[in-house]
Design a protein around this nucleic acid. Structure first.
Length: 821
DNA sequence: ATCTCCCGCCATATG
DNA sequence: CATATGGCGGGAGAT
């Protein structure tokens, strides 16, 4: 028995971790799973597992061949059915591992392509899945829920989901990262660690007290689900609150990875944070346990997606289970600063290339869905009101042309004012048109720098966001935020209960221990950096801005970068902003009143709203849109925009990673900083999934000829990788007290390779590795004695300060000295 | 013993 | 009301 079990385990690991290397080996398909009725044969069991695994592995490695993978699966399945040859082969008891969520998830994923073509949507029928995979429905829900949290699937109706694959992943991650930053997760993590520390000395003295006090404040984002423009909960979905916990937990869990510097998160910390958010109380041992259980569930799915992998962190206390982010690095969005002339671009994130075309198209029409808030009248109302507001705004000027590519507009600081300020709208490309001229115009507009000219009046439509004010919270008050980088704007809905909290909440309670100071400092540094990058100097301005929270900085980076014209625009807006900011600053110092925001919110992409409006839009527009869309589809878009190396450097600077550090911003602050973001940023991001506008923009530019169609994705990929790998790796290595061990896993993997597949593998040495290779390469490349952050590129841009600050961050109050050589 | 986390009861949501 | 979802926690396999 044991043997078989082990194998199973191994196989699983392999599946999870190894895929890339596998080669197309042919596996003689053997039976896959059998119903547990059969007898037992260890060997058979193994075989089965392996066989099962191999196909999947294959599929994985070749992500490109989706169809293949699916076919494989089918094959496997067939085999299963007819197999039986082995008689004794059977495996019988599925040993727990065979039933693991991770394995199940693999099987599930194997059925669908990572990057399904937009044209053909694949639907997921839960009944079929459960049947084919031989699992209880409950398990499928676990998987689907996590996938939903990443927007890899979305629910259509009962029993029905749509498969999006990883197309939305970049956007999702970016959005999550942003929210994570807003939530001050970094600080929370530090707090927890600190507390832990203290505990060591003092057993449980006043744990409750502390927790309550500190955490109470931190309870912020309670249940909030971050949505993306293109993917929203459909139909009956869920807006309704309560039941999104797994989804929400999943998102938060991911946020923790994206926000923390070594991208390693221990279960314990994650659980505490997640608990802390909604419940002040602690102590709950059972609650903690439950949370942990859920985290394991989520982790299994994320592992199957290869977004994380298990590791162990050894601290003073001993070693604790943890997970390390292995997914694509999310760039700090912020910097769209430079998008200007070149368009920046986005390089494909990570290793996989994404069908740009598809993405673009997708991005263009995100809204397909209307959001239905099922059964939540309040939500519906909100939406309507929002729409109305928007309409008002839009309607005001006549602007036939909306523009937008740029994206995000600014958000009004105060709702009232909002209307007054001109904003550039995001998407609306649609309407417009078709003419080349128009397109050009748009393009121009869209690019921030290039387009400075657009006058406000022209951009009447704020398509997105309208700011609503946070100040008055009604039971449900939506706060709309622009999401510059990704171009995704989202709104946060507070639960009534939360709202109370927020409103009520006293300023003093925030905690921000030491770290704060550091953070702040860093932040300022970052901002400086930004300035530097963007503008040569900017000290002056920066001074003003610095105070702002990182968020502000992030979002607003363009401010600096913008062209004069834009600047002017902004300035006008800025006045209020600045004041606000300043104010905040002071607040912050005192303790941050604002910190609480973003508590629980439900994030809804504004885009949708727009959509809703769409109806109202003139038919013409619609028509225009349609045409546009078509075009988009048919047109060959590269999707990638060339980016100069220099730019890349800037963007990738490690400092930025740190930037996130963040700080929380208050809604006000956010609102305050209206920004026009440009699409570039997003593009840069990696992400492949830029916001609609950006993609549209790119598309247009290319067509117009402004941008070369071919894109060079030269260095960018590498660079992108760098930050991630280098960081994490270095850290792990260097960390003194904290160790990350992956030993087990890797071992298993290795064994497996040797054992069963070696023969096949031998044939294919280099190719497979490639997938993972990049990491290694980059790693070595960047790894420098100085420490994780010391990279050449960095140094160029940064002044010593940055580096220092970074170091500070890492090490913050813990003893674990991670980096610092 | 501890770490993982499967299983499936049962409250809720959805249609 | 019948189902579909999915929170939750016991308790057992894996280490």
């Amino acid at each position: 028995l044991k043997t078989p079990l082990k194998q199973a385990a191994t196989s699983q690991l392999v599946l999870t971790e190894r895929q890339p290397d596998c080669q197309p080996l042919t596996t003689p398909p053997k039976p896959k799973e059998t119903p547990p009725a059969d007898p037992w044969t260890p060997t058979s069991n193994l075989k089965m597992l392996i066989s099962a695994a191999s196909p999947e592995i294959r599929s994985r490695e070749q992500r490109r061949q989706l169809s293949d993978s699916s076919s494989e699966v089918l094959q496997t399945k067939h085999c299963l059915q007819e197999h039986i040859l082995g008689d004794e082969y059977e495996k019988s008891q599925p040993s727990r591992k065979e039933k693991s969520l991770g394995l199940l998830c693999h099987k599930f994923l194997a059925r669908y392509p990572d990057y399904p073509s937009p044209s053909q949507k694949s639907y997921i029928c839960l009944d079929e899945v459960t049947e084919e995979l031989h699992v209880e429905r409950r398990r499928i829900y676990d998987i689907v829920n996590v996938l939903e949290s990443l927007h890899m699937v979305s629910r259509l109706a009962r029993n029905r989901y749509v498969w999006h694959g990883r197309h939305n992943l970049p956007q999702t991650l970016q959005a999550l990262k942003k929210v994570g930053e807003e939530n001050k997760y970094i600080q929370q993590i530090q707090m927890i660690k600190k507390r832990e520390y203290e505990h060591e000395f003092d057993p449980d003295s006043e744990r409750n007290e502390e927790m309550a006090s500190s955490f109470g404040s931190s309870e912020q984002s309670e249940m909030s689900f971050v949505e993306l423009p293109g993917v929203e909960f459909r139909a009956a979905s869920v807006n309704g609150r309560k039941y999104k916990s797994l989804r929400v937990m999943s998102q938060k869990f991911v946020m923790l990875f994206l926000v923390s510097t070594p991208q390693i998160v221990s279960l314990e910390v994650a659980a505490k944070i997640l608990i802390g958010e909604d419940q002040l109380e602690d102590l709950d041992k059972s609650k903690f346990k439950t949370k942990i259980r859920r985290l394991y569930d989520i982790a299994n799915v994320l592992s199957s997606l290869k977004l994380i992998k298990k590791v162990h962190v050894t601290e003073e206390r001993g070693r604790k289970p943890a997970f390390k982010w292995t997914g694509p690095e999310v760039l700090p969005n912020t910097q769209e600063t430079k998008l200007e002339a070149t368009s920046t671009t986005c390089s494909p994130p990570v290793s996989e290339s994404i069908p740009s075309k598809e993405q673009c198209s997708k991005a263009l029409f995100p809204s397909k869905g209307k959001q239905n808030f099922t059964r939540h009248s309040s939500l519906i109302k909100l939406v309507k009101s929002i729409e109305n507001d928007r309409r008002k705004i839009q309607s005001a000027p006549t602007s036939p042309v909306k523009i937008s590519a740029s994206t995000y507009q600014s958000l009004p600081v105060f709702p009232n004012t909002v209307a007054q300020f001109p904003a550039i709208t995001k998407h609306q490309l649609e309407g417009q048109s078709k003419t080349a001229e128009e397109m050009q115009m748009k393009c121009a507009l869209s690019s921030p720098e290039a387009v400075p000219k657009p006058e406000p009046s022209q951009q009447p439509a704020l398509s997105q966001p309208l700011g609503l004010c946070p100040a008055s919270h009604s039971s449900v008050s939506p706060v709309i935020l622009p999401h510059p980088q990704s171009g995704v704007s989202y709104a946060i809905y507070l639960h009534p209960s939360q709202a109370h909290t927020v409103t009520t909440y006293s300023p003093g309670f925030m905690l921000q221990p030491l770290p704060c100071a550091n953070i702040t400092g860093i932040k300022s540094n970052n901002s400086k950096v930004l300035n530097k990058i963007t503008t040569g100097e900017g000290d002056t301005q920066s001074g003003t801005w610095e105070p702002t929270k990182s968020l502000a900085a992030e979002e607003r980076p363009d401010t600096k970068s913008e062209t004069s014209s834009q600047r002017c625009l902004k300035r006008s807006q800025a006045l209020p902003e600045n004041n606000l900011i300043k104010r905040h600053k002071s607040d912050e110092e005192s303790l941050d009143t604002s910190s609480t925001f973003f508590p629980s919110g439900y994030l809804i992409p504004l885009t949708h709203c727009t959509h809703g409006n769409k109806a109202e839009c003139s038919n013409k527009e619609k028509a225009g849109v349609c045409s546009l869309q078509h075009t988009a589809y048919s047109s060959p878009i590269t999707g990638v925009i060339p980016m100069p190396a220099s730019e890349l450097k800037t963007v990738n600077i490690p400092a930025f990673h740190i930037t996130p550090l963040n700080i929380m911003l208050s809604p006000n602050s956010i609102a305050a900083a209206p920004v026009l973001s440009n699409s570039c940023l997003n593009s840069s991001s990696t992400s492949s999934a830029p916001n609609p506008s950006s993609s549209a923009l790119n598309f247009m530019l290319q067509h117009i000829g402004l941008i070369p169609a071919g894109v060079q994705v030269p260095a960018s990929p590498v660079l992108q990788h760098v930050p991630v790998s280098s960081q994490s790796e270095n850290i792990s290595h260097s960390s003194g007290s904290t160790n990350v061990q992956e030993g087990k896993v890797s071992k298993n993997i290795l064994q497996l390779d040797r054992g069963g597949l070696s023969g096949k593998y031998s044939a294919v040495p280099s190719a497979p590795k490639e997938a993972q290779e990049p990491q290694a390469v980059t790693e070595s490349f960047f790894r420098t004695p100085g420490g994780p952050n010391t990279e050449p590129s960095l140094s160029a841009n940064s002044d010593g300060t940055q580096r220092i600050s970074q170091g500070t961050l890492y090490i913050p109050q813990r003893k674990l000295e991670v980096s610092e050589v």
